[in-house]
Amino acid sequence: MKNLGILLDMRSPEQVLYAQDVCEKAVGSNNVKDYVIFYTRLCRLEKPFNTSILSINHLWSFSGNLILLSSDKLLEIKTIPSNIEIIYVPDTDENFDALKLLCSHANVKIKTMRVESKSLIDRTIGDNIPSQKYSSLETLIGDIT
C-alpha cells in the first residue's frame, strides 16, 4: 500500500473538481494507505476536501504516488530526493508545457482520460515518456494504486 498525493492549483476550479473526484474514489480503495492534497496556490473552496491539505513545500516529507494536475512545478518536484513517483494527468492543465515534461522525463508517467489530451501527448511527447489513456477515473486510480 502506498500514499497518494494530489498536487493542484486551487485557483483552477477544474483541477479542484478533478481532485475531489479522485479523493472520493480513493476513499473506497483498499490500496491507498493515506491520501493528501498539496497546493501551489491556496484559495477558499465552496466544497472542502475531506482530507488534509498541505502546501507544496511539504512534499519534502512525502513518499508515494503523486498525481500532478499541473506541470508548472514539475522541475522543482524533480529536485526532491524522497521516494515520489510522479503521475502527470494533463486533462485539466491549462499551461501544458511539453518542453518541461521532456526535460524531466526520468520518473514521470502520463495518464489521461481525454482523447484530446492523449493526441496532444502523442504529438508533443512521442515515445519519450510512457503515456496511457483510461476510460474512467476508477480504472486510472486502480492502475496507480
Binding site: 521532456l102 522525463h105 502523442d122 504529438r123 508533443t124 512521442g126 515515445d127 519519450n128
Partner: peptide
C-alpha cells in the same frame, strides 16, 4: 535529452498543418 521527429518553425498560427509522427 529527448527525441522528437519534427520541429516546425512557424511565423504565424496559420502556418500550422498536420504532420506525421511526433512534432512541435
Amino acid at each position: 535529452v529527448f527525441t522528437i521527429d519534427k520541429g516546425i518553425i512557424i511565423n504565424s498560427e496559420s502556418e500550422k498543418r498536420e504532420y506525421d509522427g511526433s512534432h512541435h
